[in-house]
């Protein structure tokens, strides 16, 4: 309504303070650290939950978060943004196949880290790709996420038929050699990924904001995770990746994520600029 009450800058300041207190409460109570996330998205997530929950202020919601773990889990789900798909950005997987795989074929053993793997669609996409390239038996995939609930779902590898139908198209555009349906079994309205695909996957919870190096990787995929972080945290995470990568190891980011504002551009060579595939330089400049 045109006559609905105005929201002045003081009110925005109050909300900002309330948001900081909520994030502090979450950190102290549950150990999840969202304090260095992009303010714009975190605010949208919180306001969305506030609207759904019927609380009259963020403060009131904070009280609930502190005292009710189940409510916290709901909010956690909002804050982590778990939306994902198989072969998201098919052109990326095609480029990976054409530009990275030939190099990986020269390695005796391949360690791949998916940081922020969400419910696992990306993991199975990679496992299938490696299988088709004849590399999977000498590969190990480390699948990590901050959110234990999505990791549990990733382990199960059960997805809705509805969603998987769309992934078939992605898979073909990504250069898939067979049919995606060769890799899962359908039951009623869901599908379960082939058990064999899980043979070389390790699932672990890992928080990019607080946890340490994950050693000597040949490839790190961290796609559509950095966009949720502020610049300082992005910088920390990229440094963590530099330290976790072998010389000549590859870093793959989401198509809208760049090293441009992280001060770490020097540490990498661009392999595919538009699809955001980078390679750690032999000699470190930074």
């Amino acid at each position: 309504m045109a006559d609905s009450f105005p929201i002045d800058d003081d009110e925005i300041d109050v909300e900002d303070i309330e948001i900081r207190l909520l994030l502090e409460a979450i950190f102290q109570m549950y150990g999840y650290d969202f304090r260095s996330y992009s303010k714009a998205s975190i605010r949208r997530r919180i306001m969305h939950r506030l609207g759904m929950s019927g609380f009259s202020s963020i403060m009131e919601m904070t009280d609930k978060v502190l005292r009710d773990r189940r409510f916290f889990v709901t909010l956690l789900n909002d804050l982590t943004v778990n939306v994902t798909e198989m072969y998201r950005d098919p052109e990326f997987y095609r480029a990976f196949r054409e530009e990275v795989i030939p190099v990986l074929k020269t390695f005796p053993f391949i360690k791949i880290w998916h940081a922020g793997c969400s419910t696992g669609e990306e993991i199975y996409s990679m496992a299938i790709l490696l299988e088709e390239e004849g590399l999977y038996d000498r590969a190990m995939i480390y699948a990590t996420d901050i959110d234990k609930n999505v990791l549990a779902a990733a382990k199960k590898g059960i997805y809705s038929i509805e969603a998987v139908k769309q992934y078939g198209d992605n898979y073909r555009r990504a250069g898939g050699r067979h049919s995606l349906s060769d890799y899962f079994t359908a039951r009623y309205d869901s599908v379960i990924m082939d058990q064999r695909l899980k043979r070389n996957i390790v699932f672990a919870d890992h928080d990019l904001a607080t946890d340490q190096v994950f050693g000597e990787m040949h490839v790190i995929l961290c796609r559509n995770v950095l966009i949720y972080f502020d610049r300082a945290l992005q910088e920390r995470v990229i440094r963590l990746f530099v330290d976790s990568l072998d010389m000549g190891g590859y870093l793959c980011l989401g198509t809208k994520e760049s090293l441009k504002f992280t001060g770490q551009e020097e540490a990498f060579e661009m392999i595919n600029p538009s699809l955001r595939i980078f390679r750690k330089r032999q000699i470190r400049h930074s």
Binding site: V81, V83, I227
Partner: peptide
């Protein structure tokens, strides 16, 4: 739009 007048993306 983020607080410091920069672009922020989300795949929510």
């Amino acid at each position: 739009v983020d607080q410091d007048e920069t672009i922020a993306f989300s795949v929510g």
